[in-house]
Design a protein around this nucleic acid. Structure first.
Length: 262
DNA sequence: ATGGTTGATGGTCAA
């Protein structure tokens, strides 16, 4: 069994105590982080090595973005990808235990759901399209691969607290949901979390900070995903979203999603 | 329709 986790940590330095507690309690073999928000020289590699994660692939920048893969087992063929002509730290990949792993941080996309008015939303849409082509062109569907990260899109009606009220809200607009579905279908990616937790159940991985009480009315969205390619389909064993972590001291606004492969 | 909070930074921008 190998356990993968993905978490938008929203500052790895500020959230290091939460990360160490998470690793201790849930013991993922490989954890992928987004929004580490720090340059590589300041990444707390030593504490993580001491916690049992001596292998790391990190790509950070000052102040925002940033992705990382931490592992109990060696990481091979580490690659950083830059898309849309930007140097954003949003995509890092590696091979672990014979499985190809892609850790993604899709642009949030700003507030206005119109690419002509909002360059951030345009960037988000272009980012998804570019990834779609990249995965297709490299025939990823034929290799045992895990795609995970903060995709910043909640595709299903049950992935948001109110489908109707969020149709115009970036993260759940039809235009971006369509593009995400095209990316998923183009490479036959399987939404592993929804293989375990039925699609008719409401399921969230993010709750806004901008609410006095995140538990009130449970107004969340499922923005964080773990997909696998067909060669791994039969290996899906268990999937979890660690909702309790939203209630820990000094929480991220996202909680980890986890997948166990047999 | 609006504003709400958090993080990195050092005035604001991003989410």
């Amino acid at each position: 069994m190998i356990r993968f986790a993905s978490w938008n940590i929203n500052s790895v330095r500020l959230r290091l105590p939460n990360l160490l507690r998470f690793l201790d309690e849930f013991k993922p073999d490989v954890v992928s982080l987004q929004e580490t928000k720090t340059e590589n020289i300041h990444f707390p590699l030593k504490a993580l090595e001491e916690a049992g994660y001596p292998y790391a692939a990190i790509e950070g920048m000052k102040g925002y973005n940033g992705v990382a893969i931490l592992s109990k087992y060696p990481l091979h063929d580490i690659k950083v990808q830059h898309w849309c002509g930007k140097k954003d730290a949003r995509h890092i990949s590696a091979i672990v235990e014979g499985i190809e792993l892609h850790n993604l941080y899709v642009p949030a996309g700003g507030d206005i759901p119109d690419p002509d008015q909002n360059p951030k939303f345009e960037h988000k849409l272009n980012f998804i399209k570019t990834l779609t082509d990249f995965f297709d062109e490299t025939s990823i569907k034929n290799r045992p691969t895990v795609i995970l990260g903060d995709l910043n899109i909640a595709p299903l009606e049950t992935d948001v607290w109110s489908h109707k009220q969020l149709l115009d809200v970036v993260s759940h607009t039809p235009i971006e949901v369509d593009l995400l579905n095209k990316m998923q279908n183009g490479s036959n990616f399987i939404d592993s979390i929804r293989e375990i937790i039925p699609p008719n159940e409401k399921l969230f991985s993010w709750w806004s900070y901008r609410s006095p009480d995140w538990t009130k009315n449970d107004r969340g969205r499922r923005l964080d995903h773990i997909w696998v390619t067909p060669p791994l389909a039969s290996k899906i064993q268990k999937a979890q979203i660690i909702k309790d972590m939203r209630a820990w001291v000094s929480p991220s606004d996202h909680v980890p999603v986890m997948l166990d492969l047999n």
